[in-house]
Amino acid sequence: MTFSSLFLLLLTPLYVGLIYMVNKFNTKNPIEFSDLFIGYRQNFVNILIYSLISGVISSIAMAFCFLPFFFVYPFLLIGYPILLFENSSAMEALNKSFAIAKENYGVFLLTGFLGMLISAAGIILCGFGIILTAPFIMIVMYSTYCAFLGKPRQIMYTK
């Protein structure tokens, strides 16, 4: 594992923080900068384990000429919201995400593909747009979670 891979692994709790901020926006709660770091305070180890497992799965899929990644990604789409809102273990999140995606694979495939396409638009069209468009996939994850599992429970976290 290279240094950059380890660094990216340690940044994955920020993905969960972005999903949490989207949830707070959706429920009309005030958003604070510290909300971005909820993944470091809640379920941190399971987020890292899930990220490592999904990273290995994605890397293997990408090694097969990149195309299989698009067919594997839908199974991993709602793992981070499950980790956040259900406070589950990494394997529970992976299994639940896989089971739900298996039943609704076409919807998950199209949703994941469109989310990645919009997120990639910031990179392709204008390099500085990555800051604004890359987090869009987190919104897709949250929306897909809400569509298939309902509105998430309210997370009460005291500082």
Score class of each variant (00 low, 15 high):
residue 27 T to C: 15
residue 27 T to L: 13
residue 28 K to V: 10
residue 28 K to Y: 14
residue 28 K to F: 13
residue 28 K to I: 11
residue 29 N to A: 15
residue 29 N to F: 13
residue 30 P to V: 15
residue 30 P to G: 15
residue 31 I to S: 12
residue 31 I to H: 13
residue 32 E to G: 11
residue 32 E to H: 15
residue 33 F to E: 14
residue 33 F to M: 15
residue 33 F to V: 15
residue 33 F to R: 14
residue 34 S to V: 09
residue 34 S to W: 08
residue 36 L to P: 08
residue 40 Y to G: 01
residue 40 Y to S: 01
residue 40 Y to D: 02
residue 41 R to S: 13
residue 41 R to P: 05
residue 41 R to Y: 08
residue 43 N to P: 05
residue 44 F to E: 11
residue 44 F to Y: 15
residue 44 F to R: 11
residue 44 F to M: 14
residue 44 F to N: 14
residue 45 V to I: 12
residue 45 V to A: 12
residue 45 V to F: 12
residue 45 V to M: 14
residue 46 N to S: 08
residue 46 N to I: 06
residue 47 I to Y: 03
residue 47 I to W: 04
residue 47 I to G: 02
residue 48 L to I: 13
residue 48 L to P: 11
residue 49 I to W: 04
residue 49 I to P: 01
residue 50 Y to F: 13
residue 51 S to C: 04
residue 52 L to Q: 05
residue 53 I to M: 01
residue 54 S to R: 00
residue 55 G to T: 01
residue 55 G to H: 02
residue 55 G to V: 02
residue 56 V to Q: 04
residue 56 V to C: 10
residue 57 I to Q: 02
residue 58 S to N: 08
residue 59 S to L: 00
residue 60 I to G: 00
residue 60 I to T: 00
residue 61 A to L: 02
residue 61 A to R: 02
residue 62 M to W: 06
residue 62 M to H: 04
residue 63 A to L: 09
residue 63 A to K: 09
residue 65 C to D: 12
residue 65 C to L: 14
residue 66 F to Y: 14
residue 66 F to T: 03
residue 67 L to T: 04
residue 68 P to F: 01
residue 68 P to Q: 06
residue 68 P to I: 02
residue 68 P to L: 06
residue 69 F to P: 06
residue 70 F to W: 07
residue 70 F to R: 05
residue 71 F to S: 11
residue 72 V to T: 09
residue 74 P to M: 05
residue 74 P to S: 07
residue 74 P to R: 03
residue 75 F to E: 03
residue 75 F to V: 03
residue 75 F to Q: 02
residue 75 F to G: 03
residue 76 L to V: 03
residue 77 L to E: 03
residue 78 I to W: 05
residue 78 I to V: 08
residue 78 I to D: 02
residue 79 G to F: 02
residue 80 Y to N: 15
residue 80 Y to E: 07
residue 81 P to E: 13
residue 82 I to K: 07
residue 82 I to L: 15
residue 83 L to D: 06
residue 83 L to Q: 09
residue 83 L to W: 11
residue 83 L to A: 09
residue 84 L to K: 10
residue 85 F to D: 09
residue 85 F to W: 11
residue 85 F to T: 00
residue 85 F to Y: 08
residue 85 F to E: 08
residue 85 F to C: 09
residue 85 F to P: 12
residue 86 E to D: 15
residue 87 N to P: 00
residue 87 N to S: 13
residue 87 N to T: 00
residue 88 S to T: 10
residue 88 S to I: 04
residue 88 S to W: 00
residue 89 S to Q: 06
residue 89 S to A: 05
residue 89 S to N: 11
residue 90 A to K: 07
residue 90 A to Q: 05
residue 92 E to V: 08
residue 92 E to Q: 12
residue 92 E to F: 11
residue 92 E to I: 06
residue 92 E to L: 05
residue 93 A to M: 07
residue 93 A to P: 12
residue 95 N to R: 12
residue 95 N to M: 13
residue 95 N to D: 12
residue 95 N to E: 15
residue 96 K to F: 05
residue 96 K to C: 04
residue 96 K to E: 11
residue 97 S to G: 08
residue 97 S to R: 01
residue 97 S to T: 08
residue 98 F to S: 05
residue 98 F to W: 07
residue 99 A to W: 00
residue 99 A to S: 14
residue 99 A to V: 04
residue 100 I to S: 05
residue 101 A to D: 06
residue 101 A to N: 05
residue 101 A to C: 09
residue 102 K to C: 12
residue 102 K to W: 06
residue 102 K to A: 12
residue 102 K to L: 10
